[in-house]
């Protein structure tokens, strides 16, 4: 453990930054003031044969270890010298698919607190990826021309952003419910059509909406039926009628006591080990 202390000097040198297999390490700092830097690990986005990925081949740069204060815009700005950037997406962990086009509703899915993330940067041209991998850095997240807020300023901005317009919410809810209602109405209409109509092989689909409703097909309902059956059977049985039944119950009682006794002995053993019997 102690031997792990090493000099930090070699890291500044050009080739000194060790990058893992296939990745290149690019130092990144928040601003000029910082002494130490984090390292972005970048490489071209590739997937094994057979796995599907929706990211465009050749043009996508895969970046690991993006610090929490580095946003999409910021990353885009930092990498734009390498070539025009088409899109930047940040994720909590490596994901193969692009996120759905439709953005999530800001009302129902508040922005999560960022940690260290991975980024998929899509360049317009494949050359951008090569240029990015060859970057030397250190990259600066916040510069004078493009300051990035953090700390108290960021929290105040977040708080302000969190106060949303109720009208917009209402509109969103209304549109959602309209489409939902339409969908439900369609489904019902379809179900009504099928009601009582035999299919090709002559089977009739029985649903809850029919004239004679049937038991719902749920686990709870089937359990209830089973329970009822069991009770019915138990009522018919004779208890403590035959001699062997007597013997068995007695034996059962004894076994219970033995089991309890064993358990108790174990507890005592444990208590003794914990010196729980010293009243002083």
């Amino acid at each position: 453990m102690v031997a792990r202390r090493r000099k930090r000097a070699p890291r500044g040198s050009e080739d000194g930054i060790p990058g893992p297999l296939g990745y290149s390490a690019v130092p990144i700092k928040f601003s000029e003031k910082q002494q130490a830097s984090h390292y972005l690990y970048m490489r071209e986005h590739r997937v094994r044969e057979g796995t599907k990925s929706s990211w465009p081949q050749k043009r996508t740069l895969f970046v690991l270890n993006v610090p929490p204060y580095c946003t999409e815009e910021c990353l885009s700005r930092l990498l734009s010298p390498c070539g025009p950037v088409q899109s930047v997406e940040l994720h909590g962990k490596p994901e193969l698919a692009e996120s759905p086009k439709e953005p999530k509703s800001k009302f129902f899915h508040p922005k999560p607190v960022p940690g260290f993330q991975v980024a998929y940067v899509v360049f317009r041209k494949p050359s951008g990826v090569a240029a990015a991998v060859a970057l030397k850095g250190p990259l600066l997240v916040s510069t004078e021309s493009h300051p990035v807020q953090s700390g108290v300023h960021k929290w105040i901005r977040d708080y302000t952003d969190s106060i949303l317009d109720p009208e917009a919410l209402r509109v969103e809810v209304d549109t959602f419910m309209e489409t939902y209602d339409k969908k439900i109405a369609e489904e019902e209409a379809k179900a009504k059509e099928e009601e009582g109509v035999p299919d090709d092989e002559g089977w009739v689909k029985v649903t809850r909406r029919g004239r004679r409703p049937v038991l719902p097909r749920t686990e709870a309902a089937s359990l209830r039926v089973l329970e009822r059956e069991k009770r019915k059977r138990a009522r018919k049985e004779l208890l403590n009628f035959y001699a062997w039944q007597h013997r068995q119950t007695k034996m059962e009682h004894l076994a219970q006591l033995r089991k309890k006794f064993e358990e108790d002995k174990q507890r005592i053993e444990l208590m003794r080990a914990q010196r729980k019997f010293r009243p002083y």
């Binding site: 928040f30 390292y39 960021k154």
Partner: peptide, 27 residues
């Protein structure tokens, strides 16, 4: 961060940068 340790590459926490992050995040 990745450091080479006895010829092998290994990951260790980048403590110095993290300490500075503490200050940045809570500016």
């Amino acid at each position: 961060m990745v450091v080479s340790q006895g010829g092998e590459l290994a990951m260790v926490p980048n403590v110095e940068a993290i300490l500075e992050d503490f200050a940045i995040l809570g500016e």
